[in-house]
Simulated assay, not measured.
Amino acid sequence: MAVVEPTLEVETQLHAEGARFVIGCDEVGRGAIAGPVAVGLCVVDLSVGPLPVGLRDSKLLAEKKRELLAPLAASWALHSAVGLASAQEVDRVGIIAALGLAGKRALTMLHEAGARVSDSVVLLDGSHDWLTPALASPLAVRTRVKADRDCGSVAAASVVAKVHRDTLMIAHHGDRPAYGWASNKGYGSAGHYAAINELGATELHRHTWLHAAEPADARPDVGLLQHG
């Protein structure tokens, strides 16, 4: 099956409809059992050049390729940011509200960096707008299924967010190597569940998720689990 190349066609159409800026938005870590959920944002306008060569949705890229592309994607965009919501926040408010918190934090970073957020349309991957309920002053948000695959700004956001979150989990691995976070990035691999059963959960685990999940749900191929 041929790989779909992201383009800026959707962003260009949004500009034609009056958007001064488009903010590509994607989340990473939604399905993990440990670590934060991350929301990446990349701002584009009509002045941005061609997409970085090889840019794809982060799920379609090998880890080393993502690591090479992340700084290219961040420098290609006018601005980029990654907001986080912790495992404790996921436990306290639920994953949807935690996504909103992370997205709001990323938008605040963009604003503080000089991005004209209020003049932007947010192009959000998926069919559900989880961002608007978190905002005191709602923005124009457009949802699009598979935007991370089809839309350059969202693909860039997915790569930036994925590498940012993976780097955090690899750093935590040094303190807690038994959980295998350098490889599973906090997702529910068989080895990760085995470590929890033997050693117990940590402050980086989403405890409400562990009560609901069964170790049998884990899959040996954690690479298939690291993007939801």
Rank of each mutant, 00 (worst) to 15 (best):
D57F: 05
L61E: 07
T132G: 13
L199P: 00
A195E: 13
V141K: 12
Q226E: 13
A77V: 11
V93N: 07
Q226T: 11
R92F: 00
L224C: 11
A182N: 14
R20F: 05
D91N: 13
H207G: 04
P6H: 08
V48A: 01
V43Y: 06
A102M: 09
V117A: 00
A178K: 03
V3A: 11
F21C: 07
A157E: 10
A218G: 15
L124P: 01
V160L: 08
G29L: 02
E63Y: 08
P52R: 11
H207M: 05
H227S: 05
L135W: 05
A32S: 15
L8G: 06
N184W: 15
P6S: 04
H227T: 00
A178G: 08
G152S: 06
E9L: 13
H173S: 15
P50G: 08
L84K: 11
H111D: 11
V48H: 02
K64S: 12
A73K: 06
V10S: 09
A81W: 04
A106M: 11
P177C: 11
T167G: 12
V3G: 10
M109Y: 02
W181E: 09
A2H: 05
K59S: 02
T108S: 14
V90W: 05
D217E: 13
K59P: 04
G200H: 01
V28M: 10
A19V: 00
R20Q: 14
R30D: 07
W130M: 07
A102S: 12
G223L: 13
Q88Y: 03
L168H: 09
L101M: 06
L99S: 11
S47I: 01
A81N: 05
H79E: 00
L55N: 03
V4W: 02
A106Y: 07
V160M: 03
R30M: 01
V122W: 02
L210Y: 11
S183I: 08
Y179C: 09
H211P: 00
A81P: 03
A19P: 02
L131K: 04
